[in-house]
Simulated assay, not measured.
Amino acid sequence: MGNTSSMLTQYDIEEVQQHCNNAFSQQEIVSLYERFCQLDRNGGGFVSGEEFLSVPEFAVNPLSQRLLTMLDGLNFKEFVAFLSAFSPRATVQQKIEFIVKVYDSDGNGKVTFNDMLDVLHDLTGQFISEHQREILGSSGLKMEVEVPVD
């Protein structure tokens, strides 16, 4: 898979479609490939975190730093698989697994109360102080979500 949409063969399109569980049509995959090539400024076949930050909507997203850990260094097939969680054709299970990956700060496969506090901090930034966060954390509320991955 090269740098132009003409380099994307029918076989490549079908392979990517299968890899993302048919979350995108063939035409959508071609459009995603064109966007991927625009992001891949150095033509290396991978999109860096810095290249993702060139998308204004992504750069201003309060969860962008969390997403960057999932995005940095993706090839086209991985890029489409990542985006498939946002497709209306994605299953509820796929969407839940994606959310757990985003919210699971320590990577233990569970979304704990502290993970949620970290997300709250990311979303509110300067609008919630560390002291307020500590009060929330010591309030005795406990939460943990674990989603089995098939």
Score class of each variant (00 low, 15 high):
83 L>I: 07
83 L>A: 06
83 L>S: 04
83 L>R: 08
84 S>G: 01
84 S>M: 04
86 F>V: 01
87 S>F: 10
89 R>I: 03
92 V>P: 11
93 Q>N: 11
93 Q>G: 01
94 Q>G: 07
95 K>Q: 08
96 I>G: 00
96 I>Q: 12
96 I>D: 06
97 E>G: 00
98 F>G: 02
98 F>E: 10
99 I>K: 08
99 I>V: 14
99 I>R: 09
99 I>G: 04
100 V>Q: 09
101 K>Y: 11
102 V>H: 04
102 V>N: 02
103 Y>Q: 11
103 Y>F: 15
103 Y>N: 08
105 S>G: 00
107 G>Y: 12
108 N>D: 15
108 N>Q: 08
109 G>E: 13
109 G>A: 10
110 K>I: 07
111 V>M: 05
112 T>E: 10
112 T>N: 03
112 T>G: 01
114 N>Y: 15
114 N>T: 05
115 D>H: 07
115 D>C: 06
116 M>V: 10
117 L>H: 04
117 L>S: 01
117 L>E: 06
119 V>D: 00
122 D>L: 14
123 L>V: 03
123 L>Y: 00
124 T>R: 15
125 G>L: 07
126 Q>T: 12
126 Q>D: 14
127 F>R: 15
128 I>T: 09
128 I>E: 05
128 I>L: 14
130 E>T: 02
130 E>K: 11
132 Q>A: 11
133 R>N: 05
134 E>S: 06
137 G>M: 10
139 S>N: 02
139 S>G: 01
141 L>K: 09
141 L>H: 10
142 K>D: 11
142 K>H: 14
142 K>C: 09
142 K>R: 15
145 V>R: 03
145 V>K: 04
146 E>S: 04
